[in-house]
Design a protein around this nucleic acid. Structure first.
Lengths: 227, 227
DNA sequence: ACCTGAACACCGTTCAAGT
DNA sequence: ACCTGAACACCGTTCAAGT
């Protein structure tokens, strides 16, 4: 009995890839990508380097796995029964929100198309584009356009948001950028200088989804005007 | 005379911010972002750390300055006399090509909107969108959409291209990804599995500019149907 | 002002050694 | 198999000291 209890207890706090990723995500969420180091993980998990490297190959694998968690949850949150257009909008917004909330996800996803998270995103989006009734010849390009737009623009926006402190409000950020623009030389930057006051009214998320809708309309019009 | 000659010679090989950036770009072009270190710069410029830090504040400033060179040349290459739509297409393609050729530029541009290169891009694109005749209320959102699309999608594509060796051909990369997709479980990834053979026909650049045209059409249709 | 070169405070990763 | 902890080979950046 004692052996069993001990084994069970041991197993509970035994090191595993899952537990390492748990801790990595906690660090990433709390203090961002630059705070994720093996030394920090070692302290948090009270273990040694070799122990961690026994479970994960390197830091890249760690980041990829952490990204997989976030992306997996995001894709799973979209119900299967949704109409294709609604599903695509939900996927796009879910990915936008996920990348905005976890900028390190955006960084990771821009590190190449081979990673599992990328495959899941492409599959989720591509299958819905197919369900729109897009012809086989145009299917790949259409799906690729949506994926590139969603990930590219989301990551770009997340980069913009990086300047705002973790809990700071967007309004303050926009205000300070607007101030910078107002201060620009109106000869060298006439457009930015003139438009600076409009900056505060801008809504990233709304504009992002408007772009998605625009692409979906484009895809649909090619579909219905097929020769 | 001797003093003049000596001073002139001295000036030629004196350390300066410009020379440091020159060397940084050479390293970035030849061996990528990870090869750019102060130790490498020190060797190439045969100087000391303090000398370099006397001219540039830190590595971030160095990368921003190098990016400024590339972006400046890209924007300058677009003639002032071009019609707005043609200018926007030329800007978009120029930025796409620049980011594809220098992936570190894409990385740098996604690091926040305050940097000078970002201001120049926004000014160049925004002023042309304004020249399209977009109303003041919609001008900011329209310009922001174009900028976000161009930089986001270009960076995304550059990330995709990162996997291909510096001088390797795209076809080989696409071929190997296509092979990966073909090998995927057709139950878990039916879309990717089915579409994998289409991968080779895909043209990033053509598709990128098609997306730009789509956005421009969207902007124009809102302009002409104005209430 | 401009530069030198050692030193500091970090990194990711490896590895002999333990259980 | 799983883990420990010292060590290695790097980083960016600082700084006392020189000219």
């Amino acid at each position: 009995v004692a052996a069993d209890a001990q084994r069970a207890e041991r197993r509970t706090d035994a090191l595993s890839k899952e537990r390492i990723i748990d801790s990595a995500i906690e660090i990433l969420e709390a203090r961002g990508e630059s705070a994720l180091t093996f030394r920090e993980l070692k302290a948090r998990l009270s273990t040694g380097n070799g122990a961690m490297y026994h479970h994960v190959a390197n830091k890249a694998e760690l980041l990829a796995a952490a990204t997989g968690r976030v992306i997996g949850a995001t894709i799973s949150a979209v119900p299967d029964e949704l109409e294709p257009v609604q599903a695509l909008r939900a996927l796009a917004l879910g990915l936008f929100d996920a990348i905005t909330a976890h900028p390190w996800v955006g960084t990771q996803l821009s590190r190449g198309p081979g990673q599992p998270s990328m495959l899941h995103i492409f599959e989720a989006i591509g299958s819905r584009v197919e369900a729109l009734g897009v012809s086989e010849t145009e299917l790949f390009d259409s799906a690729f356009t949506v994926v590139n737009y969603v990930l590219g623009v989301a990551a770009q926006n997340a980069g913009n948001a990086l300047l705002v402190p973790r809990d700071g409000d967007r309004a303050a950020l926009l205000g300070s950028i607007a101030q910078q623009w107002t201060g620009l030389d109106s000869k060298a930057f006439p457009f930015l200088h003139a438009i600076s006051t409009r900056l505060a009214e801008h809504d990233d998320r709304e504009q992002f989804i408007a772009g998605v809708d625009l692409i979906l309309v484009g895809i649909d019009s090619r579909r219905s005007h097929r020769p």
